[in-house]
Amino acid sequence: MGTLYYGDSGTPIGIDDRTLAHLKVAIVTKLRRGESFTVSWMHADDDPRGRSTLWLHHTIPLRFVFDDVEPPELSREWIEDLMRSANSTGGVLLVDEHVDTDRAPKIAAQQFDA
């Protein structure tokens, strides 16, 4: 479980390492361009019910902390989904990674059809 620290509050926001790695790419891309935006997510089952939203601005301190030593392999599709939502009026909506389960069996089957 990774952690996102935003601003001076010191309140940790727990986010799965893989999710946080993808979110980091989207956030850093937007902030590098000097763009402000929001990030929203539903609370985890073990947290109080509800959802949260952060307003991200390049002048506010931000730190990403990962539990895993090695960075995960990133999904271009997931990053593109996050970037599309970052460019919308609603800001980034942190959603689970979309995994195309139909594609894997087809690829495996094609390997053995030769």
Rank of each mutant, 00 (worst) to 15 (best):
M1V: 08
G2Q: 04
G2S: 06
G2Y: 04
G2A: 06
T3Q: 14
T3Y: 07
L4S: 03
Y6A: 03
Y6Q: 04
D8T: 11
D8L: 13
S9H: 06
G10H: 07
G10V: 09
G10N: 07
P12S: 08
I13Y: 12
G14M: 10
I15R: 02
I15K: 02
D16C: 08
D16H: 12
R18P: 00
T19Y: 01
T19W: 04
L20C: 07
A21T: 03
H22D: 03
H22E: 07
L23K: 04
L23M: 04
L23S: 04
K24Q: 15
K24N: 04
K24M: 12
A26D: 02
I27D: 03
I27F: 04
I27W: 05
I27R: 03
I27K: 03
V28T: 13
V28R: 06
T29F: 08
K30S: 08
L31G: 02
R32Y: 02
R33Y: 01
R33L: 12
S40F: 00
W41G: 07
M42E: 13
H43L: 01
H43V: 00
A44G: 07
D45V: 03
D46A: 05
R49P: 15
G50C: 05
R51F: 12
R51W: 11
S52H: 05
T53Y: 01
L54W: 02
W55K: 06
L56D: 02
H58K: 11
I60D: 01
P61C: 04
L62E: 03
R63I: 09
F64W: 06
F66I: 08
F66L: 01
D67H: 09
D67L: 09
D68N: 12
D68P: 00
P71V: 05
E73N: 10
R76H: 13
W78D: 09
I79P: 03
E80Y: 07
E80N: 15
M83S: 12
R84P: 02
S85D: 13
S85M: 10
S85Y: 09
S85K: 10
A86L: 10
A86W: 08
S88M: 10
T89G: 15
G90Q: 14
G90D: 15
G91F: 10
G91L: 09
V92K: 07
V92Q: 09
L93T: 13
L93Q: 15
L94V: 09
L94N: 10
V95L: 13
V95M: 13
E97K: 14
H98G: 01
H98S: 11
V99L: 13
V99S: 07
D100S: 11
T101L: 14
T101A: 11
T101E: 13
D102R: 10
D102I: 02
D102K: 07
A104C: 00
P105N: 04
P105S: 03
A109G: 00
Q111L: 15
Q111E: 07
A114L: 11
A114F: 11
